[in-house]
Deep mutational scan, measured.
Amino acid sequence: MRDETLEPLPKNWEMAYTDTGMIYFIDHNTKTTTWLDPRLCKK
């Protein structure tokens, strides 16, 4: 489920979907991926 109230992704981040429809996030700065939304992981 998407939460439209979240702010935009940080610079150089992208949201993508797996072949089965699961959301993951791509950090183009470090060339890594994560299941965790970077907008929710702020310190």
Rank of each mutant, 00 (worst) to 15 (best):
Asp19Leu: 07
Asp3Phe: 08
His28Pro: 05
Met1Ser: 12
Glu4Arg: 10
Phe25Ile: 03
Arg2Val: 10
Thr18Val: 02
Thr33Cys: 09
Thr30Asn: 09
Leu9Gly: 01
Asp27Ser: 02
Thr33Tyr: 04
Ile26Gly: 02
Cys41Tyr: 14
Lys11Leu: 11
Asp27Gln: 01
Thr20Ala: 13
Asn29Lys: 10
Thr34Tyr: 00
Leu9Gln: 03
Met15Arg: 14
Trp35Cys: 07
Tyr24Gly: 01
Asp37Arg: 06
Thr20Asn: 09
Lys11Ile: 06
Leu6His: 06
Trp35Lys: 05
Arg39Cys: 05
Thr20Ile: 06
Thr32Asp: 03
His28Lys: 09
Thr30Pro: 00
Met22Thr: 14
Thr33Asn: 04
Glu7Cys: 05
His28Met: 04
Pro8Met: 06
Ile23Arg: 15
Thr32Gln: 09
Pro38Glu: 00
Ala16Trp: 02
Gly21Trp: 01
Lys31Pro: 01
Arg2Gly: 12
Asp27Val: 00
Arg2Met: 14
Ala16Met: 05
Thr32Cys: 10
Leu40Asp: 13
Thr32Glu: 05
Leu6Lys: 09
Lys43Glu: 15
Ile26Gln: 03
Leu36Cys: 10
Cys41Met: 13
Pro10Ala: 04
Asp19Lys: 13
Trp35Asn: 05
Leu36Glu: 10
Leu6Ile: 15
Tyr17Gln: 13
Glu14Leu: 04
Met1Lys: 15
Thr5Leu: 13
Asp19Arg: 10
Arg39Met: 05
Asp37Ser: 08
Trp35Met: 08
Glu7Lys: 10
Pro38Asn: 00
Thr32Pro: 00
Ile26Arg: 05
Thr18Gly: 06
Asn12Cys: 06
His28Ala: 05
Ala16Thr: 06
Thr32His: 04
His28Val: 06
Met22Gln: 15
Thr20His: 05
Tyr17Ala: 15
Trp13Thr: 03
Asp3His: 15
Asp19Ile: 03
Asp37Asn: 07
Leu9Ser: 02
Leu6Thr: 14
Asn12Ser: 07
Ile23Tyr: 02
Arg39Ala: 07
Met22Ser: 15
Tyr24Lys: 02
Lys42Tyr: 07
Ile23Gly: 11
Asp27Arg: 00
Thr5Pro: 13
Thr30Ala: 09
Met1Asn: 07
Asp27Phe: 01
Tyr24Gln: 02
Met1Arg: 12
His28Ile: 05
Lys42Gln: 12
Leu36Pro: 01
Glu14Asn: 04
Thr5Gln: 14
Phe25Cys: 01
Thr33Gly: 03
Glu7Val: 10
Thr20Ser: 13
Leu9Val: 05
Asn12Met: 07
Lys43Ser: 14
Cys41Phe: 12
Thr30Arg: 08
Leu36Asn: 09
Tyr24Ala: 01
Asn29Ser: 10
Thr20Trp: 05
Glu4Thr: 12
Arg39Glu: 06
Lys31Ile: 02
Tyr24Met: 03
Tyr17Thr: 15
Thr5Asp: 13
Asn29Ile: 07
Trp35Arg: 06
Pro8Glu: 11
Ala16Arg: 11
His28Thr: 07
Thr30Asp: 06
Leu36Tyr: 11
Pro10Ser: 03
Leu6Ala: 14
Glu4Ser: 12
Asp37Gly: 03
Asp3Ile: 07
Ile26Cys: 05
Phe25His: 04
Thr18Asp: 14
Arg2Ile: 09
Glu14Tyr: 04
Arg39Gln: 04
Ile23Gln: 15
Glu14Phe: 00
Thr32Leu: 08
Leu36Phe: 11
Asp3Thr: 09
Met22Tyr: 14
Thr33Leu: 03
Asp3Met: 08
Asp27Ala: 01
Lys11Trp: 08
Thr32Met: 11
Lys31Met: 11
Leu36Thr: 11
Asn12Trp: 04
Thr32Ala: 07
Glu7Ile: 07
Asp27Gly: 00
Cys41Ser: 15
Leu40Glu: 15
Thr34Arg: 01
His28Leu: 04
Leu6Tyr: 08
Asp27Met: 01
Asn29Trp: 07
Thr32Asn: 07
Leu9Trp: 03
Thr33Pro: 01
Thr30Cys: 06
Met1Leu: 11
Trp13Arg: 02
Trp35Tyr: 15
Asp3Val: 09
Asp27Thr: 00
Asp37Met: 00
Asp3Glu: 13
Asp37Gln: 03
Asp37Cys: 04
Ile23Val: 15
Lys42Val: 10
His28Trp: 06
Leu40Ile: 10
Asp27Pro: 00
Lys31His: 15
Pro8Arg: 10
Lys11Ser: 11
Lys43Ala: 14
Leu40Val: 14
Lys43His: 13
Asn29Pro: 03
Glu14Ile: 04
Ile26Ser: 02
Tyr17Cys: 12
Trp13Val: 06
Ile26Ala: 04
Asn29Arg: 11
Cys41Asn: 14
Cys41Arg: 13
Tyr17Asp: 05
Pro8Lys: 11
Thr34His: 04
Tyr17Leu: 13
Tyr17Ser: 13
Phe25Leu: 01
Thr5Tyr: 08
Arg39Lys: 05
Lys43Asp: 15
Asn12Leu: 06
Thr34Gln: 06
Thr30Glu: 06
Gly21Ser: 03
Tyr24Thr: 02
Arg39Trp: 07
Lys11His: 11
Lys31Cys: 10
Glu4Gly: 10
Gly21Lys: 08
Met15His: 08
Lys11Asn: 09
Asp3Ser: 12
Leu9Glu: 03
Met22Lys: 15
Thr20Asp: 12
Pro8Cys: 05
Thr20Met: 08
Glu14Met: 05
Arg2Cys: 12
Arg39Leu: 05
Arg39Val: 06
Pro10Glu: 04
Lys31Arg: 14
Glu4Asp: 09
Glu4Val: 09
Leu6Arg: 13
Asn29Phe: 08
Thr5Ala: 13
Glu7Ala: 11
Ile23Asn: 09
Tyr17Asn: 07
Asp3Trp: 05
Tyr24His: 02
Pro38Val: 00
Ile26Glu: 03
Ile26Thr: 04
Met1Tyr: 10
